[in-house]
Design a protein around this nucleic acid. Structure first.
Length: 280
DNA sequence: CCCCAGTCCTGCGGGC
DNA sequence: TGCCCGCAGGACTGGG
């Protein structure tokens, strides 16, 4: 499940396409259901055909290709999407392709096993209304400590659940939420309005530390093997998870607690009951 | 404001 | 050996 580190790795992998022109768009037809591609290829071609990629950005968990006239091609991988410049894992789940000229890269592919993701071309107005600051919080790697506290502190929701809310903070998903809370020694069920100043400080530091380290390792490839970088290679951060998917193991921080799995908002949370205390 | 269940989708692994 | 079921969870929706 691509979160900030995985999507940032995809973004860096396709950076060499900046300056290349779009020759043709492709929508390969496998046997699976089509994903959301909007607008249809003909209209998309009219708007960006022949145009050069001016930048490759990341917006939370999305990869954004910028084109002239404020057009943005937005790849949203959701659970199993990959943005690739090399051959995809298979052709069956290949969903979208961008044929390029004038640079080192011939194709950008969008591959998506489960097909929950999407590829959308947005003009400036659509981009602002669908992905603007009203809809998406500050990036988890750019947020300041005060901003983090101000946006979260009044809310009466468990901090783990709040961290997954992209409107509050963009980029954190289920895996890194558990990792960040563990490093910050904050219990996942703690209500935001009961988190202390010292804990906001630790949370802010842990966000940076975990996400930056995960970016250095090019993200996490879980046992399902789905996530790959733009060159179809596995990430390395899965070997550095402290709690995620490690229920029953001994906590690597304190060496005493046994990592527990609980369910919050219908998703797994992993934490150490000894390091991460519910009450102060 | 917050919570919950359901929805999309596919592959995999547990249980029988 | 094969089949069914549940699970994985990002983003969204509808109802309480």
């Amino acid at each position: 499940m691509p979160e900030l580190p995985e999507v940032e790795t995809m973004r860096r992998g396709i950076l060499p396409i900046v300056g290349s022109r779009v020759v043709q768009l492709h929508a390969p037809r496998g046997r699976c259901r089509p994903i959301l591609i909007r607008p249809a290829l003909a209209a998309m071609t009219r708007r960006i055909g022949g145009q050069a990629v001016t930048a490759v950005d990341r917006l939370g968990k999305r990869v954004v290709l910028r084109f002239p006239r404020d057009e943005s091609l937005v790849f949203e991988p959701r659970m199993t999407g990959l943005v690739l410049v090399s051959d995809p894992p298979d052709t069956e789940h290949l969903r979208f392709g961008l044929e390029l000229a004038g640079g080192p890269v011939r194709h950008v592919w969008y591959w998506d096993l489960r097909g929950l993701g999407s590829v959308r071309l947005l003009n400036a107005g659509q981009f602002e209304s669908e992905l603007g600051s009203d809809r998406l919080g500050p990036d988890a790697l750019a947020v300041t400590r005060d901003e983090l506290r101000d946006r979260f502190a009044e809310r009466r929701r468990p901090i783990k659940v709040a961290l997954l809310d992209q409107q509050l903070l963009a980029g954190v998903g289920n895996l890194y939420a558990s990792e960040v809370l563990h490093l910050a020694r904050v219990h996942p069920e703690r209500s935001c309005d009961r988190i202390t100043a010292a804990e906001w400080q630790r949370l802010h530091a842990a966000l940076r530390e975990v996400l930056e380290e995960a970016v250095r390792y090019e993200g996490s490839t879980l046992s399902d093997g789905t996530y790959r970088n733009a060159l179809n290679q596995s990430g390395g951060y899965q070997n550095h998870h402290r709690v995620y998917d490690r229920a029953g193991e001994t906590c690597p921080s304190c060496g005493r607690g046994e990592i527990r799995r609980i369910v919050q908002a219908q998703r797994s949370t992993f934490f150490c009951p000894k390091c991460q205390t519910q009450r102060k």
